[in-house]
Simulated assay, not measured.
Amino acid sequence: MKLSVIVSTYNSEEWLAKVLEGYCNQSESDFELVIADDGSSAQTQALVNSYASQFRHPIVHVWQEDNGFQKCKILNKAILEAHSEYLLFTDGDCIPRTDFVAQHLKYKKKGHFLSGGYFKLPLSISKEITFENIKQQDCFSMFWLLQKGMSFSFKLSKLVQHSFFAQFMNGITPTKKTFNGHNTSCFKKDLLAVNGFNEAMKYGGLDRELGERLNHYGIVAKQIRYAAICLHLEHSRAYFSEAERKKNTAIRDYNKKHKVIRIANGIEKL
C-alpha cells in the first residue's frame, strides 16, 4: 500500500462517522486506515466494524484502556501497527477532501515531513454536514458554507481547489511549517529514529514537539496548508489543563534549547 492514515479518536462516533465517510470518497484508494483509539467504548468499535468492507485494505483498530488523555501513547502504538512506510496523521474530527490522501502522496519527499492545516467549522455547520454532502463535496464549497451561515473571511481561500493557487499560497503564507496532528505526513523510519511521540506530554503542543525533534534530526518541514484540505468539526475540550499546557511548554523549551532528537519516554522506553 502507498500510505497508512492514522486517525486518533476518543468516544466521538458522530464525528468519526463523517471522517470515515470522507475516506470512503478519496480519489486514491491504495491506503489503510489505522484508528488510534484512546479508550473509546464499544460503540466506536461497532462503527469501525461497519466500515470494514468499504476500504481496499483492512482497517486496523488500535485500542487502549481509558486512563485519561494518553494520545501520545496510542499514537505510538498505532505507528508500530501501521503497515506502510509512509504515515499520514489526522484526527477523528477532521473530514478529508476527496484529494486529501492524493495530495500527501504527491508532495511526499525523503528528508521532509508535510505540514498541512485545516478549515475550522462552527458547531452548527459541523452537525449539519451529511454523508451526502461529503460524497458530493458540498461541504468543501465556500458558497455552500456561506449559505449555511459561515462568516466570510480570507480563510475561506483554503477551500479553493486549484493547484497553482495552492502552490502560490503555500509559498507566501506566514503560517509556520509545523507538525500538526490533524494534517501531517512523514516517513515511518524518521519517526522511529526520534522515538515517536513523547508520552510525558498530555494535551497541548505534543505534535509540534515531535516536529521540532524531527527538525533537529535533519527532517525539513514542507508547507502544504493550501493543498491538502480537511474540515475541522467543532467540539468541546474537557481534557484541557492549564497545568499540563505549562508542563508541555517547559518540555518543548528544554528540547529546543538542547536540540533533543530522541526522547526517553517514546515508542521505546529508554
Rank of each mutant, 00 (worst) to 15 (best):
F154C: 12
M142L: 12
F31H: 03
L114N: 02
K202R: 14
I59P: 15
I263N: 12
V34C: 10
F164V: 14
G116V: 08
L3G: 01
Y118F: 11
Q43S: 14
L192S: 00
S153E: 13
N180L: 04
N248P: 08
A166D: 13
I267Q: 05
G218I: 00
I251G: 00
G116Q: 04
E14C: 08
K155S: 15
I267G: 07
K158Y: 11
Y239M: 08
K135P: 05
F69I: 02
Y118C: 09
P174F: 02
L3A: 08
G39D: 09
S84E: 04
K148V: 13
S50I: 13
L20C: 03
D91P: 03
S8F: 00
T130A: 07
T178Q: 09
R237T: 09
H258T: 06
F113V: 01
L3V: 10
K120N: 12
G204P: 07
L233A: 05
A221P: 08
Y254C: 11
S29M: 11
T98C: 13
A82M: 00
F143E: 14
G204H: 01
S163L: 11
V48L: 13
R262W: 02
Q64P: 06
K188R: 08
I79H: 05
N248D: 08
L192W: 01
D190R: 02
L233H: 06
K247I: 10
M142W: 10
W144E: 08
S153Y: 10
A264E: 15
K73F: 03
C24D: 03
C139P: 03
A250G: 05
H216P: 01
R262N: 06
D93V: 09
R262D: 02
Q64W: 02
E14Q: 11
A227S: 15
S163D: 15
T44V: 15
T98P: 05
E81F: 00
A227Q: 09
K135Q: 12
E128W: 03
S153H: 12
H232I: 00
S53P: 06
L146T: 15
